[in-house]
């Protein structure tokens, strides 16, 4: 019984991974791709790891450690990529409603230019 439950959990996780991959293909700009791609796959990866742990019960402690590691590091890399995208001047998609960070950055650039 336990292996079947584990395999079903892995299946749900894999479904979330496929949704994340669809998201990364369909979304218009890098920020939305991070939203739909890497972050939506976090739940899929964690579910798949836990499911594999239930399937092969000996591996469960190790897999919980790996799942925790993914949960802690994934927001960091998402944030680093988003910040890099904004700092590198990657434009936001046409659908974007507003960008308050660019508004906050803009006056500073002018100050630096006049100071130098």
């Amino acid at each position: 019984m336990l292996p079947i439950i584990g395999a079903l959990v892995v299946l749900v996780g894999a479904a979330f991974m496929v949704l994340a991959a669809i998201g990364i293909i369909r979304m218009p700009d890098p920020y939305n791709r991070i939203q739909a791609g890497t972050k939506a796959s976090t739940l899929g990866v964690v579910l798949a790891l836990i499911g594999l742990g239930i399937y092969e019960i000996d591996l469960l402690p190790k897999l919980i450690v790996i799942a925790l590691f993914v949960l802690i590091t994934n927001p960091l890399s998402s944030h680093a990529l988003a910040r890099a995208a904004h700092a590198a001047g990657v434009p936001l998609a046409d659908e974007t409603v507003r960008d308050e960070l660019a508004a906050a950055r803009a006056p500073k650039v002018i100050e630096e230019e006049t100071a130098s």
Partner: peptide, 14 residues
């Protein structure tokens, strides 16, 4: 992601 018209209104807020 699955909706055909991709209903998003992205933006950066403070």
């Amino acid at each position: 992601v699955l909706s055909p018209e991709l209903a998003i209104r992205p933006g950066i807020v403070r």
